[in-house]
Design a binder for these strands. Structure first.
Length: 475
DNA sequence: CCCCACGGGCAAAATAGCCC
DNA sequence: GGGCTATTTTGCCCGTGGGG
């Protein structure tokens, strides 16, 4: 299968340099399209996994499992791996003499067992049980992000959890910590997450390894600070602003409730009826399969996966690959399909309720032609609903541009609408690749932009704000 | 209070690997 | 053992400010 070594490779075997994959196995094992001559990272990764299967007995991977005594993530997958090896080599791998169920509890397990320990946060599943709106979740996420980006760490529970003197946590952060800890207990409110070692009542002030990590995280990740600040959730900015935020929240809540009412049978307060959960029309072929004429995309995917598991249609060597039986072949027209491609293929069978057929997609440049009809539809709907909305209102009113802005645009036009200027600004940003790769919302100014906006970098959302001084009202 | 424009994040579904 | 990454699909939300 693999040359030049078939059997026991030397301990310092470098697969990346000296291996060749036979055509037969290249097609079987790798779903990647790249040639084996051009060893991409994907191939190498797949190759390493493959190597573990084939040389299971002597591989460093197996030795790792032995060294760990079958514990950890590697150990957990040992069983699955052993089944693969058995299937391929025709014999079971040797028993691991070092493996035995753990006798002593881990530190984490001891903490959990303690009656004084704060409730364990189980993430999504636990949260899903609570009645919470999209907005609440979003604000919690923002709070978490806030915690990560600020200079002081205590109180957020993701780090040291020690009590702090300065400054006090913002309301949003407090809300985030309320999620897991009782607000009445001072010990708990100082540390929300259970992973924090000092949150254990047994050792409240014991310095932990995490604590030493704090200073390293003090400098915020590039691109995050801008966003957080722009959200304006950090400090109160006067009564008016707070009132505005409150109104906005109320409005969103109303919308959520209204949407829930429309979608029906949604009593748990979760947002439904939009995005993936929106009811869609289904092609006759898919209707035969799912047994309904209208269904949400997520439901279709669920049913497909239930069917796949029931009939054991996943390729054992690559569980992302779905081997199509007759019923699936009817839908996808292929013998096997990648699980991600499956979603793509579903677009041919799913389309919005008000449209007559599938939205033409599957081409890379689909985004522009597809978005425009949607926007047009929306506009038409609004016109019908709202009546007369002047064509030259808001962003569309031509405004007098400052000399700097005229110079920046470079076409000599001195009157342009806000939207046109924003458009051209984004064109320029994309042309010159000024978006920060780590956070594409952050725009790093080149000399020309720096002259115009007087900043080193800015958040994409604040383009309008930064451009404001360059517009002059004309009557 | 809504509208206009913009790009990114997030929601569900699955899997394997890695990190802490 | 929990949380994150990659991947695909679509639609809503965010933030900006002047005008209706």
């Amino acid at each position: 299968l693999i040359g030049p070594h078939v059997g026991n490779p030397p301990k310092s075997y470098d697969f990346r340099k000296s291996c060749r994959i036979s055509n037969k196995f290249r097609n079987t094992i790798f779903y990647s399209k790249e040639s084996y001559i051009n060893l991409s990272y994907t191939i190498i990764k797949s190759f390493e996994i493959f190597q573990r299967y084939i040389f299971f007995h002597t591989s460093p991977f197996f030795q790792t499992i032995q060294a760990r005594g079958g514990r950890g993530a590697w150990g957990r997958r040992q069983k699955t791996l052993a089944e693969h090896v058995k299937a391929w080599l025709g014999q079971a791998p040797p028993e691991n003499p070092n493996f035995s169920p753990r006798k002593t509890k881990t530190r984490r397990a001891r903490q959990r067992a303690s009656p004084l320990h704060p409730p364990v946060r189980h993430g999504r599943s636990d949260r899903a049980e609570r009645d919470e709106t999209q907005t609440e979740r979003a604000s919690r996420r923002a709070a978490r992000r806030w915690c990560r980006t600020r200079s002081w760490w205590s109180g957020c529970g993701r780090c040291c959890g020690r009590p702090t003197s300065t400054p006090p946590p913002p309301p949003s952060c407090a809300a985030a910590s309320r999620r897991t800890s009782a607000s009445t207990s001072p010990t708990r409110s100082s540390s929300s997450a259970s992973r924090s070692t000092s949150s254990s009542p047994r050792s409240p002030a014991r310095p932990s390894r995490r604590r030493r990590r704090c200073p390293r995280r003090r400098s915020p990740r590039p691109g995050r600070r801008q966003r957080v600040e722009s959200q304006g959730a950090l400090k109160g900015r006067g009564k008016k602003r707070r009132r505005k935020r409150k109104r906005r929240r109320r409005r969103r809540r109303r919308k959520t409730v209204a949407a829930a009412g429309r979608s029906g049978a949604n009593t748990d307060g979760k947002r439904k009826g939009g995005g993936f959960t929106k009811l869609c029309s289904i092609s006759p072929t898919l209707q035969e399969f799912v047994g309904a004429s209208e269904l949400a995309r997520t439901e279709v995917v669920k049913k497909l996966w239930a069917y796949i598991r029931e009939n054991n249609l996943q390729d054992p060597s690559n569980k992302r690959k779905i081997l199509c039986d007759e019923r699936l072949k009817k839908i996808f027209n292929v013998n096997s399909i990648d699980m991600f491609q499956m979603n793509k293929a579903l677009t041919k069978h799913i389309w919005p309720l008000n449209s007559d057929g599938p939205v033409t997609s599957a081409s890379p440049e689909r985004s522009t032609p597809k978005e425009k009809p949607q926007k047009r539809e929306r506009n038409e709907g609004k016109k019908q609903k709202g009546g007369s909305s002047g064509s030259g209102s808001g962003f569309l009113v031509p405004l007098q541009l400052s000399d700097d802005l005229v110079k920046f645009i470079g076409t000599g036009e001195s009157m342009l609408s806000r939207s046109d200027v924003v458009k051209r600004m984004w064109d320029y940003i994309k042309e010159n690749k000024l978006q920060d790769p780590s956070d594409r919302r952050k725009i790093i100014c080149d000399e020309k932009l720096k002259d115009l906006l007087q900043v080193e970098s800015f958040n994409g959302f604040t383009v309008s704000k930064l451009l404001a001084p360059h517009f002059t009202k004309t009557k």
